[in-house]
């Protein structure tokens, strides 16, 4: 994170994505403007079907916008070739999915090292980095386990480790706790907090208010557009005790 703190890592201007045409036209993303500054955590909340996943796919170069501009580190990425997008996904952005999307036949550590191998790192360096990440995420003892032998929260932490494998500029997470129970959600929340403190830029799409509440900024999304921004840094007005009836 060598950029000046207010240089946007990710910048969207009038971003649009449409599906179908004529009568059946769906504006999944409809004119989104957004700047994500290095080191901040941005949450996007909204009801299901409002276009959150589509927006994140655009950010991650998994899909191409129908219109508007998208810049990653001041470089236009909305008009890149499929191959250049793949390169970008290797090093600049990475993804955490709701359903983990780990490869079932690979062990935790093999899953984590995969992006590094795809990016052409040496097998040894990739393995070392993967083991170090799993260690940091408290999964050192599970490195040789297959995903089927891991709990949901552990699987998602492996997926996060995989996303960090190539030290991306931005980590994009699509409903990362959508398939997790309350305790496992807390695990992942802690992990995001740590990443945040470490200075990792994060964009999280969710309809879990708890995730959103840990962000620096939260956007509400409706019908493909960001309609409200909430800055969450700064103190609260009330005391926690009042919330459980200990104080007035």
């Amino acid at each position: 994170m060598s950029e000046a703190p207010d240089t946007p890592v990710l910048r969207a201007r009038g971003l649009r994505k449409e599906y179908g045409k004529g009568e059946g036209l769906i504006r999944a993303v409809d004119g989104v403007d957004l700047d994500v500054v290095a080191g901040e955590t941005v949450a996007i909340m909204g009801p299901s079907g409002c276009g959150k996943s589509t927006l994140l796919h655009l950010f991650g170069g998994l899909d191409r916008p129908s219109g508007g501009e998208l810049l990653l580190n001041d470089r236009r990425i909305d008009n890149l070739s499929e191959k250049a997008l793949a390169r970008m996904r290797r090093t600049d952005v990475s993804y955490v999915f709701q359903s983990f999307h780990l490869m079932d036949e690979l062990t935790a550590v093999e899953n984590v090292e995969l992006p590094a191998l795809l990016a052409g790192r040496s097998p040894r360096a990739a393995r070392r980095r993967a083991e170090q990440l799993l260690d940091q995420l408290g999964l050192a003892g599970r490195a040789r386990f297959l995903p089927s032998a891991l709990s949901g929260g552990q699987r998602q932490r492996v997926a996060v480790a995989r996303a960090l494998s190539n030290e991306p500029l931005v980590v994009l997470a699509d409903e990362p706790t959508g398939n997790l129970d309350s305790a496992a959600t807390l695990d992942v929340l802690r992990l995001f907090e740590e990443l945040h403190e470490y200075g990792q830029t994060l964009v999280i799409v969710t309809h879990d208010a708890r995730i959103a509440a840990t962000a620096d900024r939260m956007f509400s999304m409706r019908d493909g557009a960001l309609v409200d921004e909430t800055r969450l840094t700064g103190g609260t007005t009330g005391k926690l005790g009042a919330l459980v009836g200990l104080e007035d």
């Binding site: 409200d228 909430t230 969450l232 926690l240």
Partner: peptide
Amino acid sequence: VDTQRRELLRRLRDAQRAAM
């Protein structure tokens, strides 16, 4: 509603941080 939500989100964040 928006103002109230902000307030609740902040509380949620505090509770969340405390819980973590």
